[in-house]
Nucleic acid binder design. Structure first.
Length: 504
RNA sequence: GGGCCGGUAGCUCAGCGGAAGAGCUCCGGACUUUUAAUCCGGGAGUCGUGGGUUCGAAUCCCACCCGGCCCUCCA
């Protein structure tokens, strides 16, 4: 939609004209910065004197208090803030007047002068030169801050959730705590990468555009290559490609990247989200559990400096070893239902109805078990917990437990009542895998939206021989939620998906 | 897909059937050590959108749009 300037924006456009009439370029090409805001402040402190070196600092004008022949302001750059002190003695009354006439909060400016302490002891640039670097035409939300008993109190913070997400640039520009969230996010991801690299994993990249999707039960996004006249899917997981690489004789591979699932959105689901998956030859799911708890604890150490974190009022200890409990036992403890004694969908649904459930009549046995987990167990798993050994019929890629054809060697891990990841001892018998794909086809209605397509190329790869291996996937965004103490996945995505508005 | 709550000035919000308001922002003025600067004066709005009820609607009713929360869904 075309821009229709508001009154405030009209005023700023007029100031822009005034600058140009005065022969000033409101968007100059070059700057002469010598110090960041933080460097300027520490440069003064390092002198040990009450006057420091001459500096030129650049940044966004955050506050401006003009009082006749003097003025105070703050500018902010990526390093922090520094106060500007204007005095007619140094810079002349016309310049102080021009602060009011030409400048607005939000403008990028450059200020040069000597570092001094003001009467209240605040390190400040005693401004001797001053100029615009970039005019801000639209006013950012004004956030005022002051200290009360050492506590920073903020006024009129930009807090409308919808506008914060739609205009994340404005959110970031006015809310420093939001900037910190994404710094932490970056540190979580590099900590994960560092851990995987140190454990001998090779980072790889596999196709996002896939002719056959797989590795998870989710509806895909579809797209099309015009020139090849080929329908394609955006991947819902990396799994089947990463395991092909084990056939290709990489012992340990991992990928951090984006998955796309065409499903509902919620405080823990976004249509595109970041996943870490790894696959390692010659280990089983027990060893994957060891790696998992070490990985998360390592991220905690690197990001929070300790393994104990605070999340939404809970104190969570991420230090290994984590509790390991079977899915059967965990459901029995919470519901009194031993699903092994209800081996058919009908008998399990009956048992569930006795305890006040209304199970969906079309659900498979495994889906019923999974819903018991999600409803009765998952919300209680605040401390990190591995739930181990899942029903076979909801785990088409996991190896069956020796001596127990109804269960597979699979675990999910939970922290703060959220499912954080999923892993198993991988099927490496191509004939078994083919049969499992076919079983999935039978168990799920072929028209079902989450039916699992057969991936013949994946089976071909496996027929060349795949080493025994363990695989793992985790939702990186949810890990970031944990380490930033955010309740919604949208708070840890820079640009979360929102429905578009007609008028934008 | 269902339920509840919300959308009023640039920002944060009040008003909930009888002349659209407050604080901050903004504009004009005063002020040579301020920091939510202060003081004086002045602007600023399709009250989410479209219908309806009414003498009169930001306010009541209906539909729709967008968001939040909770369900549903999500191996």
């Amino acid at each position: 939609m075309a821009w229709e300037p508001t009154d405030l924006e009209q005023q700023r456009l007029q100031k822009l004209d005034r600058l140009r009439s005065a022969g000033i370029d409101p968007f100059p090409h070059r700057v002469e910065r010598t110090h960041t805001a933080a460097e300027a402040v520490s440069a003064l402190a390092e002198t040990g004197q009450d006057k420091g070196p001459a500096v030129v600092v650049c940044g966004r004008l955050r506050s401006l208090r003009t009082m006749g022949k003097i003025a105070f302001g703050h500018i902010e750059d990526g390093s922090g803030r520094v106060q500007l002190f204007f005095r007619a003695n140094e810079i002349g009354s016309p310049t102080i007047k021009s602060l009011e006439q030409h400048f607005d909060l939000g403008d990028f400016v450059q200020a040069g002068g000597e570092m001094i302490y003001t009467r209240t002891g605040e390190p400040s640039v005693l401004v001797q030169s001053f100029k615009i670097l970039a005019k801000s035409l639209s006013p950012l939300p004004i956030v005022k801050e002051h200290e009360v008993d050492g506590q920073l109190v903020r006024h009129s913070a930009f807090s409308d959730v919808e506008e914060r997400y739609r205009q994340r640039y404005a959110d970031l520009a006015s809310n420093p705590d939001v900037r910190d969230v994404f710094r932490t996010r970056a540190r979580v991801i590099s900590a994960l990468r560092r851990f995987m690299d140190n454990e001998g994993f090779l980072e790889v990249e596999t196709p996002i555009l896939q002719p056959i999707y797989g590795g998870a039960a989710a509806q895909p996004f579809t797209t099309r290559h015009n020139q090849l006249r080929q329908d394609l899917y955006l991947r819902i997981s990396f799994e089947l490609y990463l395991k092909r690489l084990l056939v290709g004789m990489y012992d340990r591979v991992y990928e951090i990247g984006r998955d796309f699932r065409n499903e509902g959105v919620s405080f823990k689901h976004n249509p595109e989200f970041t996943q870490l998956e790894f696959y390692a030859a010659y280990i089983d799911y027990h060893e994957v559990m060891n790696l998992t708890e070490q990985m998360v604890a390592s991220v905690a150490e690197q990001v929070a400096g300790q393994s104990i974190i605070q999340y939404q009022g809970h104190t969570i200890n991420l230090a290994p070893p984590w509790k390991r409990v079977s899915l059967r036992q965990s459901i029995l403890e919470r519901t009194g239902i031993d699903y092994v004694e209800c081996p058919t969908p009908e008998s399990l649904a009956a048992a569930m109805r006795e305890t006040g459930h209304q199970p969906s009549p079309k659900s498979s046995w495994g889906k019923l078990v999974d819903s018991l987990l999600g409803t009765h167990v998952e919300p209680h798993l605040i401390q990190p917990t591995f739930i181990v050994d899942y029903p076979r019929d909801i785990s088409p890629l996991a190896k069956t437990k020796p001596g127990d054809p109804t269960h597979v060697e699979r675990f999910e891990f939970f922290i703060a009542g959220m499912e954080m990841g999923n892993a198993f001892t991988e099927i490496n018998d191509p004939l078994d895998q083919e049969q499992r794909f076919q079983e999935m086809g039978r168990l799920y209605d072929p028209d079902a939206e989450d039916a699992h397509p057969m991936d013949d190329d994946y089976l071909r790869a496996m027929r060349y021989g795949m080493p025994p291996c363990g695989g793992f996937g985790t939702g990186v965004d949810r890990l970031v939620m944990l380490f930033t103490n955010r309740r919604s996945i949208r708070e840890v995505l820079l640009f979360p998906h929102l429905r578009s508005r007609e008028q934008q």
